[in-house]
């Protein structure tokens, strides 16, 4: 089954995030081979690309590199989501949020407005 490089990147990042310890190309390869046929060079290429993209950091141990994620999946997600929300405010054409940011007072006012019309029964 041919899969896109993007999907392989995603799979490898998920593995790297799940290990919670550094891993070599060989480690990842053996892990992936439990589920599919895959060449060493393919995994190496993708991990090198993830390193170039700034998602993995690596250090040389002997002849090979040992890789680890630059940040946790949670931190990376938080950065992306915060960025997406910030951008929707000043560069609206990029992403369209269901809801812009609100102050707590505004959120309270919203809740009060809904209490007048409870969702049940009226739908």
């Amino acid at each position: 089954m041919v899969r896109g490089l993007g999907e392989l990147e995603s799979t490898i990042m998920d593995r790297m995030w799940s290990y919670r310890r550094p891993a070599s190309v060989r480690d990842v390869l053996e892990d992936l081979r439990r589920e599919r046929e895959i060449a060493y060079t393919t995994v190496m290429t993708v991990m090198d690309k993830l390193h170039t993209k700034g998602l993995l950091r690596r250090e040389a141990v002997g002849k090979a590199y040992i890789y680890r994620p630059v940040s946790s999946k949670e931190a990376y997600t938080a950065d992306l989501m915060r960025e997406s929300l910030a951008r929707s405010g000043n560069q609206a054409a990029t992403l369209v949020h269901f809801l812009e940011r609100l102050t707590p007072e505004e959120a309270d006012a919203l809740e009060a407005a809904l209490k007048v019309y409870p969702p049940k029964g009226r739908a």
């Binding site: 405010g89 812009e100 940011r101 609100l102 102050t103 006012a109 919203l110 809740e111």
Partner: peptide, 18 residues
């Protein structure tokens, strides 16, 4: 809209939500 962490609640633009 409600119960968001501070980083996600700052800024303007809420009047339109109400």
């Amino acid at each position: 809209a409600t119960g968001r962490a501070p980083a996600f609640t700052l800024g303007a633009g809420g009047e339109s939500a109400l």
